[in-house]
Nucleic acid binder design. Structure first.
Lengths: 152, 152
DNA sequence: CGACATTAAATGTATGTACATATATTTGCA
DNA sequence: TGCAAATATATGTACATACATTTAATGTCG
């Protein structure tokens, strides 16, 4: 049993109560998970938000997505999908065309190159994604219930 | 019972398993909590990382802290404490002086103005910090145990 | 029809994150 | 002593976040 408690991770010996500890613990653990993932993406020259947008586009494929749809499905709704798409377009991973039926909107499509890239990444990334596998299924269910309740 | 499940929040109807759902849920909830806090800080012209550094400095007061000590205690250890201190110095909330006993290091001290600011913020911020209060104490304990286990 | 609000996306600006590199000081040891 | 390694911080660059503002297209209602 070599679990590292949050107290030790950030060298703060005492929390006011379990709520404050939970708050810090949640932020810290989420950041920790994201860094694990980001490291796996670096060798494919993708950042985490870029990867997430590509996954949404693959889910839509072969239908296009608009910027609005990307924002709706993104975890961080206030981030700037438009500029992340810029970077993906520059790498040839997505295309942008004005939507014919609504010229305010932009149809964004994933390219073949990006689909192949995702395919190569799938196995590699999945193997590293499962830090949560340290939990039993029951514990994972419990975690989801607690998190949903926090945002109530 | 109007708990909003993560499936609905990001409009993704199906997850592969409870682990994948837990991963997404954790990242999403942490971001949600941080935004709640950031909104409370905005009226005081502080960002969340700036506030966190001020709190660490208050904990040290009247002893100074070095950049190294700030990094040790920060939640995000790879971020750039030096530049956050820049911003705080520009606002007159901290002072920087070369450490006499080790001229490589910098003694960072919180100013009276910052101590007063934190005092004004304490009540305001605490009232908004406790989104986790939707949990019972037992649930908060459970959450902490699960999070520690994930990082094992 | 035409002014006005609404919607979709892009842009501007300040801040922070992530990582590599630079600069200065101190330490260790041949 | 002197020189390489280690330490403490700062700086450079690319990217993302947060929020306000702008631009263009569409809807609506008098």
């Amino acid at each position: 049993m070599h679990i590292m408690r949050i107290e030790d991770e950030i060298k703060q010996p005492v929390f006011k109560d379990e709520y404050q500890k939970g708050y810090i613990n949640l932020i810290y653990t989420a950041g920790w998970l994201q860094q694990q993932q980001a490291a796996a993406f670096r060798e494919f020259d993708l950042t985490l938000p870029q990867f997430n947008i590509l996954r949404i586009l693959r889910g839509q494929h072969p239908k296009p997505a608009t910027v609005n749809l990307l924002i709706e499905r993104m975890l961080d709704k206030t981030s700037n999908a438009s500029r992340i798409v810029d970077k993906l377009e520059a790498k040839g991973l997505v295309t942008r065309t004005v939507c014919p039926s609504n010229r305010r909107a932009v149809d964004i499509r994933i390219t073949e190159a990006a689909l192949e890239l995702l395919l190569r990444m799938d196995t590699e990334v999945l193997s590293k994604q499962h830090n949560l596998q340290t939990l039993t299924v029951e514990e994972a269910v419990q975690l989801n219930a607690l998190l949903d309740k926090i945002r109530d």
